[in-house]
Design a protein around this nucleic acid. Structure first.
Lengths: 193, 193
DNA sequence: GGGCAATCTAGTCACTGTCAAGTTCTGCGG
DNA sequence: CCGCAGAACTTGACAGTGACTAGATTGCCC
């Protein structure tokens, strides 16, 4: 596969992508520089633009890849709680993807690959919600989906932004999340006007 | 009437801040340019740097202001659900603040003003959680707080990233959120539409 | 008034994304 | 095996950016 490459890199697209994921995970998307990525790959400054049209194209590709990864992760979920756990795990294992996926102003929203990947992930989410018997497909099956998604998404987001470092401490975040869902969905949960 | 633009702007700090909020709300923090803000204020390109040391300083000031606004909003909350509603309302009314507040890599974390404002907002959140009688101050009062925060934060975040445009439709997001909490924290009170 | 610090201007430097045009390699039909 | 179309990459240029500096202007307080 890869051997000597004086001129052609071999798999520049993948190299740039993974370098970008590193940068985003540590310093955020705004610290991303195409020239820096090119430097890391040992390639001229304009080479990445050939694979991803521009900066937005690179980020869009990352988001699409993220939605695809999320879809496969949710695919194997046993029930809704497991789907939530997998959602949180995905955010922790792929923080760069996660961050970019939910920052629409960085993406080319009309990109085909992005749209299909996102649609697939949304489908997976919806089936996980529909698997809960009590929610049925009533008018508030949607509401249940929004509730579950909000909880998982909020937890993941706060986790990544280091806002739960205190409360969670050194416990396994997935365990904490499981405890959360057990608390909310048990009958006779904490009443509240 | 004001005659020709004087040498001194008058309130450049406020002008730059509000222009920055406009830009961030529509195009995100990465689209923010100090030079552009200076241009909008009709001032030389280096003028903003005198008020906010650098780009990071500007964003840090915005985040601090955001935490202060959030603290006062939560201050008047009647109960935990109301606090959640106010949290969502804050995110919708101050999307730029909200976005910057939870993007730590854009901020100067050791800034004093930021730290105190954040601490105050956190205090308000904690008292709102503690006001729920059954949660008491047991070992999972923390857990309840994380649950409530995650739900509200996730809902707000998904809302701002236009991921709930479908499910929520044209309903008032605050009403939807109220319905959510009624669903999760089931009690004697029937969830309203 | 006189001085002084806050405020703003003007110029520079290194860096960035993007474009256009050139160069080198690869795959493929003949 | 050849040759050539095009993909992959380079090179060079341009405008815009953040950060820094030195200097100009102004309001303000004694």
């Amino acid at each position: 596969m890869t051997h000597q490459r004086p001129y052609h890199h071999g798999d520049l697209r993948r190299a740039v992508l993974s370098a970008a994921l590193d940068v985003i995970a540590t310093d955020g998307p705004s610290a991303l520089s195409l020239r820096d990525l090119a430097r890391r790959a040992g390639v001229s400054h304009a080479a990445p633009a050939h694979h991803f049209k521009d900066r937005t194209g690179l980020l869009t590709a990352i988001a699409a890849e993220g939605y695809a990864l999320l879809a496969t992760a949710l695919d194997e979920a046993k029930d809704l709680r497991d789907a939530g756990v997998r959602y949180v795990r995905f955010a922790r294992e792929h923080p760069a993807h996660f961050q970019v996926m939910f920052t629409p102003e960085l993406l080319r929203e009309n990109d085909l690959e992005l749209a299909t990947a996102r649609a697939l992930a949304g489908e997976r989410l919806r089936t996980a919600v529909a698997a809960v018997p009590s929610s049925g497909r009533g008018p508030d099956a949607r509401l249940a989906g929004v509730a579950a998604w909000s909880l998982a998404h909020g937890f993941a987001t706060l986790l990544l932004s280091h806002n739960l470092d205190g409360p969670v401490g050194d416990r396994d975040p997935e365990d904490v999340f499981r405890a959360l869902t057990g608390m909310l969905f048990r009958s006779g949960a904490t009443p509240e006007s």
